[in-house]
Structures are given as C-alpha cells and as structure tokens.
Design a protein around this nucleic acid. Structure first.
Lengths: 239, 239
DNA sequence: TGGTATTTGTCCGTATGTATC
DNA sequence: GGATACATACGGACAAATACC
C-alpha cells in the first residue's frame, strides 16, 4: 500500500516538529527549499503544509513563512471524543476495558425514532445499549442505532468485542464522516444505575451521526460519558 | 475587498446546498461540469469542494462524485464553542447580554502562571475575570490572560464591551489559530457565587490558547460555562 | 463478463499577484 | 526598490475507482 507523496512529506514534517527538529516559533524552510529537499512540486509541499495547519502544528503568513505553533502537551490520560473506537482508545492507553451489553434488539424506525436519529422511517435498525468499563469502572453508556442493511448480521458477541473491528474486517465498511454534537445534561435514573458518577449530577452527551463511504448514515450513537473521564480537543484556524 | 474565486464558488455551492438546490444524498455536478459552469480551472473547483468537505456538507468518493450529506438541523438556540466573541454570539441570536468585570489587574508571569497558561515567564499580562450575562442570567465566567505587549492599553471599559472588537478595530490584531480543550469539572465556590447553575454541580471548562497572525500566543482563556447553556458541534472526516 | 467512458485523486510546471523583509 | 516568500489560478498528464453499456 504505497503512500502518496504529500502524505509522506506531511508525516515527515510532523515528526520533525514533534521531535523539535523544527522548534516552537521557528519558521519552516521556505516552500521552494522544501521543494528541493523533497524533490517534488510546490503544490505538493503546500498540500503537506495545509494538513499541518489543520492539525494546529503551524500557522502561515503571507510573505513570511510557516511558523511552528505546536507545543508539547502533557498528554491527558483520557482523551475521548476522537475518531477512534473504545477498544482502540483503551488499548492505546493500556487500560483494562470491558463492554457489557444491556440491550440488543431489532427495531423498525418509526416517527419517534426518526425524529431522534434522522434515520429514514421504515428501515430496520439494531438498537444496542452498552456500558463501557475502564479499569473496572463503568464510565460510558453507548446507545447505538445501526442500519441493518449496512451492518448485516450483528450479534451480542460482536457488540461485546468491537463493532467497528467487525465492520472494517468483515464487511469492509468504514466510518468516513462523523458529525458530533456535545451537550451536558442532568443525569437520569438510568445513568445513576449503570455508571460510576463520582458525585456528579450531570453527564456529557455526545450525539454522533456517522456516514460510510457510500454517503449512507448507517449509525446514530448517543454516548453518555461520566464527566470525570471526558476530555475533548479542538483546533480551528480562521481563513 | 475582492473575494477569491474559490471562496466565491465555495459559498455559492454552500448556499445551493442549504437551499436544497442540491439535495441530501444527491451528487454534485462533476468537477468538469463545474469547471464549465464557473469558468475556472479544475483545481479551483477542487479547492471549493475541499472546503465543503471540511464543513461536513459533502463527501467525495473516488470515481463517483461528491455526495451531499448536509442535513437541516434544528439550529440550537445556544451554540457556544465557535470562534466568535460573546458579543457577536449574543447579537446573532438577538439575546440581551451584559458583561461584568470582576477582576482587572496587571501581573508578571511567574512559574505558577506559566505552568497554567504556557505564557513565557517574565512578561506582563492582563489578568481579567468577567461574568457574562445572557437574558439577565450569569452563564459564563471568563478568566483571561492577555499579553500586554500585544494588546497594549486595555481598560475596564473595553473589557465590559468587547476586547475582540477593540483588538481588531484599534490594533488590527486578529485571532488566527485557536486551540481548545474541554473538560467538565465539579463547581467551585466561585462558580456557585457568580453563576446561575440551575442545580448542576458541574461546570464546562473550555481552556483556549489563541495565536495572532504573527504566531504569538497572546491570549490564554479559561471559559467556565454553566452546563445548561453549552453546546458544541464538530465534524471530522477520515482521509 | 468485459471493455469503454466518466469521475475523482495525485502530481507537475508555470504565471501572476501581493505581503514581507 | 529589489529579493524573498506565500497565495491564487491555470493547464496538462496520468492513475485509480467507478459507472455504464
């Protein structure tokens, strides 16, 4: 699987910034210099730098250059909200994890579910409730709706392991676009029964709409996070 | 101030999607068609579409096209977290707003402040605490640190109006990059004294590092939002 | 099933404009 | 004013995935 040139350059520059070969506040070499260094066109260098801008690693200024604004961050232990599965997250952080399935059923989308999930009325969906445990503590409740025509035959076993692993490996399905909304709400009785709230009377509710490569919104998920374990990062650049 | 071509195309397509000229799940005209329509090069069309992808409006697939995945959203009344000032937000939503300055002082950054804000040790900063009122209710507490060498002469009057308006109009300074981190914490005594918490024992803490066009991190802000008034949207696309 | 056309993705080179140094 | 550097735009070539007949 050969990577593209601009991705290679992007990753190389990124690593050099992280390793402080290019330091905070320093200007990157000019585009023309990088063109010679990587033996490519200026467009390709610019695409690589464009990605670094999106990641908040550099900031460019017209006739000046691309300045490094990446700062080493005491990486938080917990870092939810990224586009990765619970299992991946737990593994990456070397955390003991477990998923318990509370509800597993098939439903037909009616008016009420449609209002809530934006799934088209009449289709069949899996409705799954799961509690995620981290180091033995129940910290997240996931409420999923999966389109059955896309995810085919789900089972409780798969839901206890990783639905995303199953989708990518067995069905070659991938989440391509994720739209999310975050709010904080008062806890419900359900939250109090299932989650370790540590005195909080609120819960972070992340509602996601997830599209596959065909542009089909195949998943609607409400993730209810205990506040103590929730962190979200974001960076934006005004054009 | 003439806009660039790709921005014009981007905005035109965006509007057509919002107005449902191009509908949900429909494919946009091919790049070559758009090239003829807008009388421009293919690269320019592709840049415009790239922006639509970033906004979560379309999703492209190799060999197929760009599919609209924009869905009308019951726009939430409150929508914090965007890159806009409190005053802009309040005005856009036709809300009565008011800002009360609690603390206004000049400090020299020491080890402790540096640890917390990443501002360089030894420089002078304004330290400002403000409570934001919306429709008469205190809903946000902002704790700012501004580099004095960048923001020059701040006053309490400016802080009560809009520091950002002052910066852009008087000093021609702009926030270019904003890095943010969101967590939920238990309320402090200060939160309880100053904010209308409506029974919540938690508070949404948004910590921001803000860079100007010269790559100087001139502002560090901790925004403490009452949970009931906090909404954050996000969309990501896997490459 | 297979071949062809369409469509997006990558990459290159060049030219011009504009901000910075 | 001149040199440097980024920003925009155009055009062309080829590859790869998809759609169509």
């Amino acid at each position: 699987m050969p990577k593209t040139k601009y991705i290679e350059i992007y990753e190389d520059l990124k690593e050099k910034i992280e390793k402080k070969f290019y330091e905070y506040q320093q200007l990157l070499p000019s585009e023309n210099t990088l063109v010679k260094e990587y033996e490519c066109s200026r467009n390709t260098v610019r695409r690589a730098i464009g990605n670094l801008i999106n990641d908040g690693y550099v900031q460019t200024k017209h006739g000046q250059g691309a300045r490094v604004i990446y700062q080493d961050f005491k990486q938080n232990e917990y870092m939810f909200g990224e586009t990765e599965s619970f299992k991946q997250f737990a593994s990456r952080n070397h955390k003991k994890h477990e998923t318990k399935v509370i509800t597993f059923e098939t439903l037909t989308v009616d008016e009420t579910i449609h209002e809530h999930t934006l799934m088209p009325i009449g289709i069949e969906v899996y409705h799954i409730k799961r509690v995620r445990h981290l180091e033995g503590n129940p910290v997240i409740m996931d409420v999923n709706y999966f389109r059955k025509d896309v995810v085919k035959e789900l089972t409780v076993d798969i839901a206890e392991d990783s639905i995303y692993e199953y989708l990518s490996k067995e069905l070659n399905q991938r989440a391509v676009t994720a739209k999310r909304k975050m709010v904080v709400e008062r806890t419900t009785e359900m939250d109090e029964n299932y989650l370790k709230l540590d005195g909080f009377n609120s819960i972070v509710v992340v509602t996601s709409h997830i599209f596959n490569g065909d542009g089909v919104m195949f998943e609607h998920t409400q993730s209810r996070h205990t506040p103590g374990n929730f962190v979200f990062f974001d960076q934006k650049q005004t054009k």
